[in-house]
């Protein structure tokens, strides 16, 4: 496994300008973290501690005033383009069908962008395969508002994957879903990670979710966020949902909870 596919070193970021001021909030301070290629990393921490900021720093949507961010061996100075993102809200375009929503990244990212016309049929087939892999076959011509919340979230996941990114950034993607749908999607993500060997960073509030999915869990401190603790999850893969009831699973969750409680103080 390639070390340091994502490498943040002493990163500090402030919103609202580079210099300190009364309105400027230091979101993360002296944040150091490294994720290997192909690894599944989860980030947990109190609300407002800078988890979403971390995602934006990695993808090149924000730039730190101190420290360095590198992805795939390159310093991040612009949007990274090798990442797919999904958020708590599915953010689908209501005037596009599910299939057209999926094709959106291909209309932006090179080389697909200039090949879109020529390879349309191939891309549509790829989108349909992706939809089928998350249990949405046949829903391509539906509009997002004709889908349930969980189905929209799956579509959003597919959109993040359509251009076959090396890196998948998930910011509380299951936060708005009910417990059953959420667990169903855990398995979808687990299988995606297993088959595609992509690097995944998942931000979540749900410790069970983090432990079930991740190879490593990072615990962040309250704002300004930095990494308080890092925990390797050694549970064997492939993991089944039953593992969440096993005592060793519970033990890890308890252990992490203790970290979060201390982080909140």
């Amino acid at each position: 496994m390639e070390q340091g596919f994502i490498a943040l070193d002493g990163v500090s970021h402030r919103y609202g300008g580079q210099t300190a001021g009364p309105d400027n909030i230091v979101a993360v301070a002296d944040l150091t973290l490294s994720v290997n290629r192909g690894e599944f990393a989860a980030v947990v921490g109190p609300s407002g501690c800078g988890k979403s900021t971390l995602m934006k720093l990695v993808t090149g949507l924000q730039f730190p005033y101190a420290g360095s961010v590198a992805v795939a061996g390159q310093k991040v100075t612009q949007p990274v383009k090798i990442a797919g993102m999904a958020f708590q809200a599915p953010t689908l375009l209501p005037w596009r069908t599910t299939l057209e929503n999926l094709l959106l990244p291909l209309e932006i990212v090179q080389p697909h962008r200039s090949q879109l016309r020529r390879r349309k049929a191939e891309y549509v087939a790829r989108a349909e395969r992706l939809l089928a892999s998350v249990g949405l076959d046949g829903f391509g011509d539906k509009f997002p508002w004709q889908l349930s919340g969980g189905m929209q979230q799956r579509t959003s996941l597919c959109r993040a994957l359509i251009h076959e990114p090396q890196l998948l950034m998930l910011d509380e993607p299951f936060g708005a879903l009910d417990a059953f749908t959420r667990e169903e999607l855990w398995c979808v993500i687990r299988d995606l990670h297993a088959t595609r060997k992509i690097t995944i960073v998942l931000v979540t509030h749900d410790l069970r979710e983090a432990v079930f999915l991740a190879d490593r869990v990072f615990v962040m401190s309250a704002r300004p966020g930095r990494i308080l603790a890092e925990r390797k999850i050694e549970l064997p893969r492939p993991r089944d949902l039953d593992v969440t009831f096993a005592p060793e699973f519970q033990a890890i969750v308890h252990d992490l909870r203790a970290h979060i409680v201390s982080a909140r103080q």
Binding site: T59, Q78, A83, A86, F87, L93, W95, P105, E107
Partner: peptide, 27 residues
Amino acid sequence: IEPEMEDVLKALGASKLDIMRKVGIPR
């Protein structure tokens, strides 16, 4: 425009004009 939508596209390397054409104007 939802900031998340903008983020999704920007992270893919979309220009301002792209975002305007794909999201802003239809919206």
